[in-house]
Design a protein around this nucleic acid. Structure first.
Length: 547
RNA sequence: GCGCCUGUAGCUCAGUAGGAUAGAGCAACUGCCUUCUAAGCAGUGGGUCAGGGGUUCGAAUCCCUUCAGGCGCGCCA
């Protein structure tokens, strides 16, 4: 729809003697009667052409008005050009949509370029929480979006299974283990305290009995650390399974050390002259690339920092020949962006190769009151508990009806009690209703095959034309969601589409007595169903057959 | 103190590379189930786009500033 219009307008601008094309933007006019799409391009050009916008608009309109796709063209307000499409065009487009759904809905923007998207990557030191859920829903939807747009997408989870945090986890479990066996053993100061720590300790008792009773932690560390984080990682995988998110690759931090990636990346940076020694530590010259201070990579005590393995990690990723890397982080890590970007630059790659998307914090409420999250006692509501309470589809939908950078208030009570009238069901219900119509058509013996050959000219009702136009708008929405990394645009679109379908369903009988009309309406329903499923698929939300 | 994000209807949020009379859902109120699923439909009310200045044909959107909330600013991750 937009593509055809752009072509027509560009041709007309060329006729007006313009050789460099300005970006041609479109919007939906505020009132339906004004037309289907409008462009303010005449007002933009007014400065360049030094002519009043309405004059330019008239010239464009005059040279375009004979196009067969156009029903009428109006000039309105300060210089908007309003286009109304001809029915012939709408009917032929909806036919295309039905006949070639996949290429119609999935424009090949990616051209098989490779993108890797890394998300969640929660430390294996505890179950996933709501923040991870939001990052997960967003990352998964973006990956689906990119893949629908013809990119080759890899989803990766980075496992911080080396370093201080998993060690602290092991020590916390070790302490609980001793305590369970009747020994007084202090929990580490900032150790992990959730009930799951005790469960892991019980698991070790179960598998290894009291073999590590009263040994020193140092002598049992490997077992306690490995046992604990692996068990938690399995729990995370189970959380993800329940949430309906899968990954292609799981990159272990330990492996980066084991495979010499960390060493190699340091040598690399050293050779390039971005490493120096100061105060008994080794530093990376991040300020050379716009970061506000240089960063330590080997501490005085000889240990690496978390940043060191992140250098190796991003170096490895970027070396694997991806055209684009996307990292999705919680917004609390935003200060970390210049640091990682500076690594990309130091390694000789353009910074734009890495796109860091921030997903804002989630605050959990119940009935308007904040749910207490205590770090001290380790008491917090996990993602799994929320999924089990409100369901994965509703949970994802709530995450995906907000802009990633808006702060999100997730009220469990609202998510649940609203469930009957929750927007996600509104969308799913439209799909289920259409399925039901098709099974009724089948029972009545109405031929629902080859619907692309139905007589679309019978679709003359306002509700029908509105739906057709909305369906043809999908590629625009898709493109916008993709270019801005904003999957929520799909969510809103699906609500709008459903918001047209339900009233139509209520007002007009799809399975009309007139068989040809029934077939035309079935074709329309089919198109709606295809788009709903496509959109829900991108969001990672199911489209139940029946409800 | 510095930096990032946010502030839009009673509530939760869209709308921001400037565009026309600022939208949706929920909540509130009034109706609609003997024909394809009432998880639905029809209708009503609801706004100082946080405040103030500026830029221009035009600002919720851009700039400056104030206020409010959140998050960062480690040889922690």
């Amino acid at each position: 729809m937009k593509k055809d219009l752009v072509k027509i307008i560009e041709a007309s601008l060329r006729k007006l003697g313009l050789d460099t094309m300005p970006p041609i933007e479109f919007e939906v006019p505020p009132q339906e009667s004004m037309g289907d799409l409008a462009t303010p391009v005449a007002m933009t050009l007014s400065k360049i052409l030094k002519k009043p916008p309405r004059k330019i608009a008239e010239e464009i309109a005059a040279s375009v008005k004979d196009e067969p796709v156009m029903e009428k063209i109006d000039i309105a307000g300060p210089g908007f050009i309003n286009f109304t499409f001809s029915r012939t065009y709408l009917y032929s487009e909806i036919k295309q949509l039905l006949k070639y759904s996949s290429s119609f809905l999935r424009q090949d923007i990616g051209k098989r370029r490779k993108v890797q998207i890394e998300f969640i990557s929660a430390n294996p030191t505890g179950p996933l929480h709501m923040g991870h859920g939001r990052g997960g829903a967003t990352g998964d939807a973006l990956a689906n979006l990119l893949s629908a747009a013809g990119f080759r997408v890899e989803r990766e989870y980075y496992i911080n299974d080396a370093g201080k945090q998993v060690k602290l986890l092991g020590l916390s479990v070790f302490a609980r283990y001793q305590q369970l066996l009747g020994i007084e053993y202090p929990l580490p100061e900032d150790g992990y305290r959730g009930a799951y720590i005790e469960d892991i300790a019980k698991g070790i008792i179960n598998d290894h009995d009291n073999r590590y009773l009263q040994t020193r932690f140092e002598d049992a560390a490997d077992l306690f650390i490995d046992y604990s984080y692996k068990r938690i990682l399995n729990g995370i995988k189970e959380d993800l399974r329940k949430f309906g998110i899968t990954f292609d690759t799981w990159q272990s931090e330990r492996e980066l050390f084991r495979d010499g990636e960390v060493e190699k990346s340091l040598e690399d940076l050293k050779a390039k002259g971005f490493i120096y020694e100061k105060d008994g530590a080794l530093w990376f010259k991040a300020t050379a690339f716009g970061d506000e201070k240089d960063r330590v990579i080997i501490k005085q005590d000889g240990e690496y920092t978390y940043f060191t393995s992140d250098i190796a990690y991003h170096r490895k990723k970027i070396d694997r020949a991806y055209d684009e890397l996307i990292d999705i982080w919680g917004a609390d890590h935003h200060g970390y962006i210049p640091r990682v970007k500076s690594v990309i630059a130091a390694l000789g790659y353009p910074e734009e190769k890495l796109k860091v998307l921030l997903v804002q914090m989630v605050s959990l409420l119940r009935g308007g009151k904040p749910v207490q999250m205590s770090k001290r006692t380790g008491e917090f509501v996990t993602l799994r508990e929320v999924i089990e309470e409100v369901g994965p589809d509703t949970t994802k939908f709530i995450f995906l009806t907000r802009r990633p950078d808006s702060h999100l208030e997730f009220d469990l009570e609202v998510a649940k009690t609203q469930s009957a009238e929750n927007p996600v069901f509104y969308v799913q219900y439209a799909n289920a209703r259409i399925n039901s119509i098709f099974s009724n058509a089948n029972e009545k013996g109405i031929d629902a095959d080859k619907l692309a050959d139905a007589d679309f000219t019978l679709l003359t009702q306002n509700g029908e034309l509105r739906i057709i136009k909305k369906l043809l708008m999908y590629p625009m929405i898709f493109e916008g969601a993709l270019n801005n990394y904003e999957p929520h645009r799909i969510t809103f679109y699906l609500q709008e589409l459903s918001g047209l379908f339900h009233p139509y369903y209520n007002k007009h009988r799809v399975l009309a007595d007139d068989i040809e009309l029934a077939r035309a309406r079935l074709a329309l329903c089919q198109a709606v169903r295809v788009v709903l499923r496509e959109g829900l698929g991108i969001l990672g939300i199911t489209a139940p057959e029946k409800m």
